[in-house]
Design a protein around this nucleic acid. Structure first.
Lengths: 137, 137
DNA sequence: TTTAAATTCTACCAAAAAGTAGTAATTAAA
DNA sequence: TTTAATTACTACTTTTTGGTAGAATTTAAA
């Protein structure tokens, strides 16, 4: 019952970026330091975020990364989806794909409501939330 | 956002055992076949379940395993606790231990309610539930 | 045009989780 | 007392995830 480190970092990175004006160009170095993530691992994730079209990269000297969409339009669910973090929202929490209304695992019905609540929470929370309070990223 | 295979198997094994009368002696062979878990991996988990005092082992010929407590008293939460599956119930979903009311991660408050609902569900669901419907284990 | 500061790519290494193999120990039945 | 059926133990292999290294590429500034 945990998110992968990669997903957690991705959420923290994008949220951090959302704190600056949209046009601000973020450098990997700055992000790695501010978020206390290893530079090498961070750049790997940045590449992935570019592929997922969450951010734009500007290569070369004075380059960096920018958010590709308004922060208020990027949900946590979008991020988790891209990092394939949602298997138990499709399969079931115990079932391995084989869980359906005819072949229910014992947690099938019990899990339905919490699952929906989590999904709603992820779907309605955008990285912009970082600007609505005093958060530690 | 997934349980480990080990935890899933543990839940399935104990639920399966809960379907027989309490005194029934379950053999690894039978369990592995019925639950479609590799015999070797299953015995590894059985050893862990003995250590966790969920089951009793009877060694030697005609040996096997028995539930150590009434099925109606073994909750999913008990099982998950033993397999250390609950870190994000103590830490936070984004925070790495460092998440507290003074240093909140952006999901700190959003996560609180779903987390509680999941925990309640796990705490109030016992392996005995398997006898209250037609489930596939 | 050269150089420095940045991203990108390819490949590797480390740690944890999942799973397997083989043998030792135990015990009831034959 | 021997044997067969069972759990327990130790050690290994495989797969996935997390993380690192180093060189290639890009581009603006000097």
């Amino acid at each position: 019952m945990q998110l992968s480190n990669t997903s957690k970092y991705a959420i923290r990175i994008l949220s951090y970026m959302a704190r600056q004006e949209h046009e601000y160009v973020h450098k990997s170095n700055e992000l790695a330091q501010s978020l206390d993530i290893s530079y090498k691992f961070l750049t790997k994730i940045m590449t992935e975020l570019v592929k997922g079209e969450f951010i734009l990269s500007i290569r070369g000297r004075e380059g960096g990364f920018q958010l590709n969409h308004p922060a208020s339009s990027i949900t946590i669910l979008d991020i988790l989806k891209h990092f394939q973090e949602l298997t138990d929202f499709h399969t079931c929490i115990l079932g391995n794909g084989a869980c359906n209304p005819h072949k229910k695992c014992i947690l099938h019905d019990k899990w339905a409501s919490p699952r929906q609540e989590i999904k709603n929470m992820f779907a309605t929370t955008t990285i912009d939330i970082v600007n609505s309070g005093d958060f530690k990223l």
